[in-house]
């Protein structure tokens, strides 16, 4: 649902999507080490197929995004991860469009970066529970979807979609996705914290 097809948005919107994506990609890739690539590949594989897990929500069909999961596990490298996933979804699943790869990456990648910041901030906090990862993983996972939907809604409204249509079809339909991804990301962050802490972007300071 958060993948916009070709020919819907005004050219200046998807054009600026490409510009933003190119800029963030250039920055994040400059920070990437070759040792990170196998881990990125594994997470990208998960993000890539997540969009196939879809269910009927009210009047429309929605699917998982897993951008929060990418942010929590990869940190800023979630951006190239989302970009590759979006490219492959566009060409292999005809999910979204080719001209909109840039803007779709912004819609999912920027929330992934923000979810990473939330997770990072949460790891420094002492909230009096033993597993910060679960709580802040869940918050990061849910926030990432909510922000992605918000960005999409704004772009559709700017393009001239009707407000009621956008809010009911896009925003309301994604409430179950927000919940599912919050639970998923929280559980998986807690699991990695115990079993394989190096899979997380940030380690808890003890």
């Amino acid at each position: 649902m958060v993948h916009i097809s070709d020919g819907i948005l005004a050219p200046w919107i998807w054009g600026s999507g490409w510009v933003i994506t190119a800029a963030i990609l250039a920055y994040t890739l400059s920070k990437m080490k070759i040792d990170d690539v196998p881990k990125i590949s594994v997470i990208t594989a998960a993000v890539f197929v997540a969009s196939l897990i879809h269910f009927q929500a009210g009047p429309t069909s929605v699917h998982l995004i897993l951008s929060g999961f990418a942010g929590v596990t990869l940190g800023i490298l979630a951006y190239p991860c989302i970009f590759i996933a979006v490219v492959m979804q566009a060409f292999l699943f005809q999910h979204g469009g080719v001209t909109t790869i840039g803007i779709n990456t912004v819609n999912m990648g920027v929330p992934a970066l923000i979810s990473f910041l939330i997770f990072k901030a949460g790891m420094k906090l002492n909230v009096g529970i033993s597993k910060n990862e679960i709580l802040f993983g869940a918050i990061a996972g849910g926030t990432a979807v909510a922000l992605a939907v918000l960005l999409l809604a704004v772009e559709l409204l700017v393009t001239g979609e009707e407000f009621t249509e956008v809010t009911t079809f896009v925003v309301a339909a994604h409430i179950p996705v927000i919940l599912v991804e919050a639970i998923f990301t929280g559980v998986i962050a807690g699991f990695f914290a115990i079993v394989k802490p190096e899979m997380l972007s940030i380690k808890k300071r003890l």
């Binding site: 040792d35 690539v37 594994v42 594989a45 890539f48 590759i84």
Partner: peptide
């Protein structure tokens, strides 16, 4: 898709 990613990961 998995093939592409496994290839990228493998080369890295």
């Amino acid at each position: 898709g998995f093939g592409f990613l496994a290839g990228i990961g493998g080369i890295a």
